[in-house]
């Protein structure tokens, strides 16, 4: 496989790359993008070479298959701190240029979402579509967005759910169910359920909320087994780099 990727040994020779000017760089760049290998490379990049989870969620990484949330999954969050976890994951999945859509989430605290790493200039708020249009709207969003957060007010039919799931997998978008996937007819790929939490910073009449320790149960179709637990600390911010405008990676 390696030999196919680097078809031209000069491309990987640092001296050649450093000394090249103008045209040379473009040619090798184009070749890297055009070659049949790029398909394989891109697929592997998308599915395995995910960035590490944000530090606060690192305890989850040891439980999750391949150490992270995979693109194309459906993720359900429920219980304590569910929305915070969801926004933390969304901010992480958006990366440097992705968009997030929130469907029917008029009560989502966007300032809080921004603190968890969601880039607010790449958020689209979509009002709840009528039930018969819901699948159409979500399907359209899945095509353009990295993350689509939903909380349907009605139960989704099995055929629609299957189609949406297939579309999301094909487009490598993550569908996040903020109601824990209760309205979803299939088990979600990954379920994060906040079982208990302990708040810091608040006393009896003094202080202010600062952070919490959250016990998360990991479930879902892709979970490695039943009854996997992890304790995460959710302090002010999950993905700090994003809020400061610095690029990820």
């Amino acid at each position: 496989m390696e030999s196919i990727v680097d078809r031209d040994p000069r491309d990987s020779d640092p001296r050649v790359r450093d000394s090249n000017v103008g045209g040379r760089a473009t040619v090798s760049e184009l070749r890297a993008r055009l070659g049949p290998v790029s398909l394989i490379r891109q697929q592997t990049e998308n599915t395995t070479a995910l960035r590490a989870l944000p530090e606060a969620l690192a305890p989850l990484a040891s439980i999750l298959p391949m150490g992270g949330v995979q693109r194309g999954w459906s993720v359900g969050v429920d219980g304590h701190g569910a929305w915070t976890l969801a926004m933390g994951l969304a901010g992480w999945l958006m990366e440097a240029d992705g968009w997030m859509a929130a469907v029917g989430l008029e009560d989502l605290g966007l300032v809080g979402a921004g603190e968890q790493g969601v880039a607010l200039d790449r958020v689209l708020m979509v009002e709840t579509p009528p039930p018969d249009q819901w699948p159409t709207v979500v399907a359209a969003l899945v095509e353009a967005m990295h993350v689509v957060c939903v909380r349907p007010h009605h139960r989704i039919g099995r055929p629609e759910a299957r189609r949406l799931q297939a579309r999301a997998r094909e487009q490598q978008a993550v569908l996040v169910h903020l109601d824990g996937g209760r309205t979803w007819p299939y088990p979600v790929d990954l379920a994060l359920i906040g079982r208990s939490q302990q708040w810091d910073g608040l006393g009896e009449g003094h202080g202010h909320l600062q952070g919490r320790r959250l016990l998360v149960e990991v479930g879902g179709r892709r979970a490695p087994g039943v009854g996997q637990w992890a304790e995460v600390r959710l302090d002010g911010q999950l993905n700090e780099t994003r809020l400061n405008g610095a690029g990820s990676r």
Binding site: W99, L124, E127, V137, L141, E143, A144, M145, H146, Q172
Partner: peptide, 23 residues
């Protein structure tokens, strides 16, 4: 995928369903 042009296109498409204030 996921770039702003695509988002703009989706917005234009969904407006027909949800109205201009729906997005």
């Amino acid at each position: 995928r996921g770039r702003a042009e695509d988002v703009t296109r989706v917005v234009a498409r969904l407006q027909t369903i949800l109205g201009a204030d729906g997005l």
